[in-house]
Amino acid sequence: MSATVLSLRGATKRFGGLVAVNGIDFDVTEHEVMGLIGPNGSGKSTTLNLISGALKPTAGSITLHGTEIAGLAPQEINRKGVARTFQLVRMLPSMSVLDNVMAGAVFGHRRAWGQAARDKAMALLDRVGLSGRANNRIGELTYIDTKRVELARVLACDPRILLLDEWLAGLNPSELETGITLIKSLRDEGRTIILVEHVMDAIRSLCDRCVVMTSGTKIAEGTPAEVLNDPEVIRAYLGDDDA
């Protein structure tokens, strides 16, 4: 059995009276792709936000290689090797594509500067299929290309754990296929990936394991085949009548 990289124990987030994430426990092992799935509003993105440090957990612990990271600032968590994309793509609109990617290379987990950072950014642009667009402005890109830039920026941080928040949402079938191949290649080079996703095809073909959430709690955990046949999961997605 391979080593546990990240584990959540009783992770909880309350917004006033609303409990968005309620005592979630799970472990992520090295080199695995873990899917975080569930209906809208079930707390998946909030969980991701707790891991990346965008939100501070109200209670519970989150450990990275045994070190507590719950409550650290996002930049500290990022520097420890956890990087993320955003549900709504976030770009640096005043900068060129290359500078957007260099942002990750210069300040992320492994830091580079000058020519080294530029080379790294160029290589990653190549990898996500944007070679030749380095000097474009962000405003000139299509939606899918902004997603590519964001992924390249996140990869430039050289993360050990990659958090993808619905990165495959809104892609057409052929783009989706490219996207899935890309994520697979990331796993193959030894990165650990947590993805929040709705696209079932992607979940089936990518995830080693899934955690299913509904109303802030974990209701199932296992391989995609296991959890997608779990009656409770079906009920959570489709309601009682169809179960």
Binding site: G53, A54, Q75, N78, F86, L92, F107
Partner: peptide, 9 residues
């Protein structure tokens, strides 16, 4: 984008 900055370390 300050959020991106923070999440880029």
């Amino acid at each position: 984008d300050e959020e991106v900055a923070r999440h880029s370390g």
